[in-house]
Simulated scan of single mutants.
Amino acid sequence: MLTTQPPSLHLPPLRGLPILSPGALIDYIEYLRGLYTPSVRGSKIRRRFPSDPPSQTNTTLPHISSQPAPDLDQIAALRADQFERAYTIRWLTYLINNAERLEGEGSEVEKVIDGASNLLANCSGTSSAGIINRVLDFPSPRGVISIALRDIPLENGDFNSVGAQTWGGACVLSEMIADRPADFGLVARDSTTALRVLELGAGTGLVGLTFTAVANSIGIPVSVVCSDFYPSVLENLALNITTNFPVQNPSISSQFLDWSSLADHHPPPLPPPLDVPCDVILGADIIYEPEHASWIHACVSHFLDRSKASEFHLVIPLRQTHALESGTVEVVFRGNLGPTILSKETIVSDVEGNAAQEVEYAYYRIGWSRA
């Protein structure tokens, strides 16, 4: 649980920072990150279990605890305290400016400075403008996968640009990929051909970035395409890709994709790398309008490779406010026409930093019928 002690009391004195180990400094940065980076709702998996079989409609709605998280008011008060924010800014600035005096391995010191720099951007005013820098960590068989993200605000209040923020479903799907890569096709293969992966409605790119990082950690070649529609979202997506893979990396790219165009009877030809079938398709929190399920069905029908046991992995929140939209998944992906639901699980997650609340998700594995 996040401590409610103010930074001016919890952080070590400035003059003592250079003699602290990188591990100790990272602990302090994590404390500040929890305090000054707003949490992502429903982002930590608590439990998962099989849902109703595909032939039945699951009407489970989310259980949201009405009990506030312990010390939530104190944390909010600390966040709003201008003296504590100013103290934090001075502390982080001193740490960054004295990086050369820090003791430890170069990679460890670099991690400290990167974390401090992201937090300084949040504390210095970008977060008040709607820009949030995050670092999300996911345990994996080969170690922790860390993904740096920038969230940006809605553009002129346009809900179409909502993908520029990180949503809980993307965190949940990323955690699943990192924890069980084999479930997503990340297994040793005889072929040297890269595994072709498409993320629909990539938003900040978290899922695609995590998939790429996990694949790289276990030495499996992949070609991940993070697709989206809205210009500002694509611009931010490209920046997040460059941040995590600063050297030009053929394993991951961003691409414009209009779902509705593939719902036409005569869809237009698509440019590379969207001109070949995919082994894996990923989607998180991408059903928030009634027509989205039909458009996504058209995309999956078009892109999912029929010649293999290829799958579409979809995570959607079960919320009362979007019951109609999420229900369309059960209708559209049932039957013999096109890809169908192969299995379904319910995943219960807590809100990062607030274990007193829960959010439920439906996790679908969708593919061509194996009958």
Rank of each mutant, 00 (worst) to 15 (best):
N156I: 00
R334C: 02
C226E: 11
R319M: 04
L318K: 13
D73C: 02
G163Y: 02
Y36C: 01
N97R: 15
T4G: 06
L102T: 10
A202D: 02
P7Q: 01
D81P: 05
N97D: 15
L324P: 01
S217K: 03
L318Y: 04
F303L: 06
P269W: 13
T60V: 10
S251L: 07
V222L: 04
K111Q: 15
D190W: 02
R47W: 01
S260V: 03
V135H: 03
N156K: 09
H302K: 09
G283A: 13
D114K: 14
W368E: 02
N354L: 10
D179W: 11
A86W: 06
K44F: 10
N97K: 15
D305R: 03
L9H: 06
L234P: 02
V214A: 06
G125H: 13
I26W: 00
Q5S: 12
P62C: 09
E199C: 06
E352A: 12
Y363D: 11
V359I: 13
A116H: 06
G143K: 09
D52L: 15
V331L: 13
R150P: 01
S307G: 04
I131C: 00
C278H: 07
L78S: 03
D52F: 06
V225Y: 01
Y230G: 04
Y364Q: 01
P6N: 02
P269G: 07
Y363H: 15
G338D: 12
